[in-house]
């Protein structure tokens, strides 16, 4: 049976997902709080896989916790830490436990993380991981050996609409579609006109696009991301808007901006939904939804 997330996307509804970052350690209380706060307010919760190459409680563990608490998980899988044997095995486990939605990523580089001497695996890349899932669905593993029980998964991937240069990024986007990616989560977008242009191009493919919404918590953060994060450009007007917020009010302004963007994307049917990344401020996601005029 199709997952609720897939059903939601195929229903034409404007879909909202958010993110759960598992903790570093075995104390899961904070993660449980975030899950309980968000599980009924969004269509699915996307669990990060050692995001930024920082070692944490595993993504599959976060997904199991979400299901136990009545939410709907999307399992993020990166290619950084596991070879093809381990990735396939984890996909079997995820399927067996009821996970149906997988986001396939290359994974950040090891040196940006907190175990910097680790070996980066990258036995597969994101396109190959998507193809591997197709093979597991067809009933065999990557060695061509028959499975006793296959998987059936709804797979997605990421795209950076403002990558420079853009064409290699779009070629890879199309390779991911050919490999069976059905939904895409974008890198954070802030310039809606430019995003609308990307969507004109993306609309020719039979895939669902969730715009990446990263909460801006201050003008400083906005400038930092523009200067340092590949493919993220915060327009000057938004930076000014944050800078002009009253003292202590920048976060509130950031929530307002995120809400406004979501409302705009939704009202003008620019894309199929949004993926909200509040990065360590998951507790304000409901405020963002309220600011967008979405009542849960």
């Amino acid at each position: 049976m199709a997952s609720k997330f897939k059903q939601a996307l195929n229903s034409g509804k404007f879909v909202i997902t958010s993110e759960i970052g598992p903790p570093k350690g075995t104390d899961l209380e904070k993660m449980y709080e975030h899950i309980d706060l968000l599980k009924d307010k969004v269509d699915a919760l996307n669990v990060t896989d050692h995001q930024s190459s920082v070692m944490r409680f595993p993504s599959i563990g976060g997904c199991l916790a979400i299901m136990e608490r009545g939410g709907k998980p999307i399992l993020q899988m990166t290619c950084r830490d596991r070879n093809r044997i381990a990735l396939q095995a984890d996909l079997l486990l995820a399927y067996n436990k009821g996970v149906r939605d997988i986001l396939c990523l290359t994974g950040d580089a090891v040196p940006v993380g907190d175990n910097q001497a680790a070996k980066g695996v990258f036995d597969l890349d994101s396109v190959q991981l998507l193809h591997s899932i197709r093979q597991l669905e067809a009933g065999s593993d990557l060695g061509g050996n028959e499975l006793a029980g296959a998987v059936e998964l709804y797979t997605g991937a990421t795209v950076t609409p403002e990558a420079v240069p853009l064409e290699p990024q779009l070629i890879k986007f199309e390779k991911k579609i050919e490999a069976g990616a059905k939904f895409f989560q974008t890198q954070a977008i802030y310039d809606l006109d430019r995003f609308a242009k990307f969507m004109e191009y993306a609309r020719q493919f039979p895939v669902k696009i969730l715009a990446g919404i990263v909460l801006l918590s201050s003008a400083r953060m906005a400038r930092f991301m523009t200067a340092n994060v590949p493919g993220i450009f915060v327009p000057q007007e938004l930076i000014d808007e944050l800078a002009q917020a009253p003292k202590g009010g920048a976060l509130k302004k950031g929530i307002e901006i995120a809400g406004r963007m979501i409302a705009d994307l939704m009202e003008n049917s620019i894309c199929d939904g949004v993926h909200i990344m509040a990065i360590n401020r998951e507790e304000v996601v409901p405020d963002i939804l309220t600011a967008a005029g979405i009542s849960a």
């Binding site: 580089a109 990421t158 290699p168 390779k175 590949p230």
Partner: peptide, 19 residues
């Protein structure tokens, strides 16, 4: 840096590597 075969990762940055 990652030895990818099917195209750039999301860390590609104006022709440079994010690492």
């Amino acid at each position: 840096h990652k030895g990818l075969l099917n195209g750039p990762c999301g860390g590609t940055n104006n022709g440079k590597c994010e690492v």
